[in-house]
Amino acid sequence: MTIVTGKAEARRKLQPGRSGVLRNIWAHRADYAYVLPAIAVMLVVIAYPIYYTIELSFYKTPPGLQLRDKTFIGFDNYTTILTSEVFWKVTWNTLVWTFGSTFISFVLGFATALALHRDFIGRGVLRAILIIPWVISAVAASYIWKWIYHSDFGIIGAVLVGLGLTDRPPNFIDNVSTVLPSLIVVNIWREFPFAMIMMMAGLQTVPDQLLRAAKVDGANAWQRFWHVTFPHLRNVSVVTILLLAVANFNSFIIPWIMTAGGPSNASHIWITHIYELAFGRQRWGVASAYSVLLFLILMTLGYFYVRALSGNERKEGGA
């Protein structure tokens, strides 16, 4: 009720040529008053931590000392990060982790969605089974996979030895060159059902009549997919990929529980590295600087996400 009144009031007060942000806010003051509590809460729980992190990133925080003993050092933390070897190693790992997991999860999810889109006996059961990895807790999944990979008791090793493919069980996660791919496999296993669900929902919106028109026009199954289904799924694909990418960039549970970044940083990604710097080694300043950089990267991804979403609406609205 009052919101409506506020708007009507705004219309009355907004004379042509006398606008401006502040005037506009004043004219809508009733509306703003309603969201004020929410804004206040958000300032406390979101804006302040962000501000504090940014502030900390310009300070040296000696480990073992109180935070109030910090000293201002300008951009030193940032230079330290950008010149350290570990930074580049971790960044490379993060890229491999994010893009590897995202790409393969998406392709695998899409493929399963396509397979499950056709009608066959047991489809419902299969679909339910395939969703399990996504619904079980990441912590539990990490421990399960730790055992599956275990060099002495792991089932994969046992099977490989049993088949006579290797003499000794391979060492998946204690090996610098195999640890990251092994973790990516776990991550994909856990998140491809998400892509599958998204794409299955998308597939259901492909207009049947278009597929039939393509059939009459002489398109075979592959051509129908390429010319009708795939273009139709473009937006849902973009959204799925971006959501996966953001989630993967932010992954923590699987890499931290399974290897905690080891051996010798081979499986450290940004988040685990920041966590270790901050809460393991109490290097708050450097960790904050890392966080600020991460924040900027994620904001960029978020921008594209929002753009993909609103692009969607624009198109639907125009059609």
Binding site: P207, Q209, L210, R212, A213, V216, H227, P231, A319
Partner: peptide
Amino acid sequence: AMVFQNYALYP
């Protein structure tokens, strides 16, 4: 050749 009710043009 077929003409559909909702035209079924490739958008």
